[in-house]
């Protein structure tokens, strides 16, 4: 199904995550320059979408817009029944806390904290009643990702281990959406391959909607669909190929 210009289809996974509907999305820089223009994008829940393109193509900008982090946005970004464009900054933060897990290129962990504390970081700002459950899920995710000795500081972890801690953090809250920004860029090949398997495997198992921005063709190859961007706009099928 080619529902969006520039978006190539593969077989979609089981639906468990939120569906995405983007319409007339334009993101501008504070000076007004158009950073991203995406007329439409529709993903069923549980789809794994790979976003690729050269540097400066607007990949991260798209990810930030999907997360509701972009301050300057036109158009609508709808996750399930929630239109992010209608929420204020605090509402979007609340939505991220509940519905979106984020993974970053350089992990963004607190080196001074243990793997367990990093994975359970969102527990610090969740309602008191949810904290124990979130910590338990974070611990289970770490085990599921093959990490042991999670009481020690992540400063001593390898890059691959650190990114797995970041994945555990993203999944700890049970978010139906995962947004990953170049998740393998800081890893060696072996670690990247393992991470790709972990990330896509867990997303598929949970039916999570995954949007992964990446230059890594091995990761892109594991996605259900691929969106190619260039100069802040989707590239048509022929160009994308």
């Amino acid at each position: 199904m080619a529902d969006t210009e520039g978006c190539a289809d593969r077989e979609a996974g089981p639906s468990g995550g939120l569906a995405l509907r983007v319409s007339g999305l334009t993101v501008r820089s504070p000076r007004g320059r158009v950073l991203l223009s995406l007329p439409s994008l529709e993903l069923p829940g549980g789809t794994l979408l790979g976003v690729r393109g050269p540097s400066g193509a607007g990949k991260s900008t798209l990810l930030h817009a999907l997360a509701g982090l972009s301050a300057v946005a036109e158009g609508t970004v709808r996750w399930g029944d929630t239109d992010l464009s209608r929420l204020d900054a605090e509402g979007r933060a609340r939505f991220r806390a509940d519905q979106i897990g984020m993974i970053f290129q350089d992990f963004l962990l607190f080196d001074e904290l243990s793997a367990q504390d990093n994975a359970a970081l969102p527990a610090l700002f969740r309602p008191r009643a949810e904290r124990a459950g979130l910590r338990a899920r974070a611990a289970a995710r770490l085990v599921g990702l093959g990490l042991s000795d999670t009481a020690r500081s992540v400063a001593s972890y390898s890059g691959g281990e650190r990114q797995r801690v970041a994945i555990a953090r993203a999944l700890a809250a049970g978010a139906p959406v995962l947004l990953a920004d170049e998740p393998t860029a800081s890893l060696d090949r072996a670690a990247a391959d393992r991470l790709i398997a972990d990330l896509t495997g867990m997303a598929r198992a949970a039916g999570t909607t995954l949007v992964a921005v990446s230059h890594d063709e091995r990761l892109i190859a594991r996605m259900d669909r691929v969106l190619t961007l260039a100069d802040g706009a989707p590239v048509t099928g022929a160009q994308a190929a």
């Binding site: 997360a67 982090l69 900054a89 605090e90 933060a93 609340r94 939505f95 991220r96 806390a97 509940d98 979106i100 984020m102 970053f104 963004l108 607190f110 970081l121 969102p122 610090l124 700002f125 953090r169």
Partner: peptide
């Protein structure tokens, strides 16, 4: 500021 931005990206309320 990166750590602060991370917390916001993870959905931490401004008050936190």
């Amino acid at each position: 500021r990166r750590q602060i931005a991370l917390l916001r990206a993870l959905g931490a309320p401004r008050r936190f």
